[in-house]
């Protein structure tokens, strides 16, 4: 727990100074780490659920890499090199798990806490403000996502699916991607009225997962569809990861990163504003 506490404190410190000055008083108390801590404490009782997130990409890698891989043979990588099917999908799964983990925490669990457990009403009776809550929840989603990504990268390394030292950068990249998805997730959830709205989350996440060149290269699509796929965030995450783990890194990586920088900023601003109207009305 101490390590976790340290981590969460650092996470806050960087933003606290700036945000305290920028935001009106009452919205932010510089204590988002309290939220991260609470989530960490609460998660001890559902540790199985937390640990399970790590297995999800692993199951996909085993089933698809091994099972489907046996039907496929090799696939062309980012620089035209031939990759085993497992080596092709592993970075895609890494990107997808960063998205899924972040989106899950930022939508389903966040909604339960917001709407049913009334957790935040109690928190707002303390010095904590809505921005603490937004940052804290995003921070927790990130922390979890980071652990999953690190674990999965470790396995990729162990079974020889990382072909370049660039692969090390896949971890911070995964965190960045998770941050962007968590921000957007919290922002979206703040607009939801009931469970029925979560199908819209599914409607966004599932097609992205299936069609963002995660399981087969972009080249199988007609060109119009290729453009469409490239408009969605997960495609950029998958491409970024794939170029890092295979070592085929080019200037396009910066483009992918810029995409997530914009997404994270917009998501965070909307989330803070929405939580303020929802909780402080």
């Amino acid at each position: 727990m101490t390590a976790l506490r340290e981590l969460s404190r650092e996470f806050d410190a960087s933003r606290a100074a700036l945000l305290v000055r920028v935001l009106p008083p009452g919205l932010y108390a510089g204590r988002a780490r309290m939220l991260v801590l609470r989530s960490a404490l609460a998660s001890r009782s559902v540790w199985l659920a937390v640990v399970s997130g790590f297995f999800e990409p692993l199951f996909y890698l085993m089933a698809m890499g091994q099972g489907l891989g046996s039907l496929v043979g090799t696939v062309s990588g980012p620089a035209g090199q031939q990759l085993s099917y497992a080596a092709f999908i592993a970075p895609g799964l890494l990107a997808a798990s960063a998205m899924n983990g972040a989106v899950y925490d930022a939508t389903f669990s966040f909604f339960i806490k917001l709407k049913y457990a009334k957790l935040y009403d109690a928190m707002l009776a303390t010095p904590l403000g809505p921005v603490d809550i937004a940052l804290g929840e995003i921070g927790w989603a990130l922390l979890r996502g980071g652990m999953y990504s690190a674990g999965f990268l470790g396995i990729m390394l162990a079974v020889g699916l990382i072909f370049s030292p660039w692969g090390l950068l896949a971890l911070p990249a995964a965190l960045f991607v998770a941050f962007a998805f968590a921000s957007i997730g919290i922002a979206t959830t703040s607009f939801m009225r009931s469970w029925q709205d979560f199908d819209l989350v599914q409607l966004a996440v599932v097609p992205m997962f299936l069609f963002s060149a995660t399981f087969f290269p972009l080249s199988v699509y007609p060109s119009a569809v290729q453009w469409l796929v490239q408009a969605f965030p997960l495609y950029h995450a998958v491409s970024l990861m794939r170029s890092l783990t295979t070592g085929a890194v080019g200037w396009s990586a910066l483009g992918h990163l810029a995409y997530f920088a914009v997404m994270a900023t917009v998501g965070f601003l909307v989330a803070s504003r929405r939580l303020t109207t929802l909780l402080l009305r």
């Binding site: 009782s45 559902v46 199985l48 659920a49 399970s52 997130g53 297995f55 899950y104």
Partner: peptide
């Protein structure tokens, strides 16, 4: 009885 963390485990495992 709880918030349903067990479901996450069911879905994933």
């Amino acid at each position: 009885e709880q918030e349903g963390g067990a479901f996450t485990a069911i879905f994933r495992f």
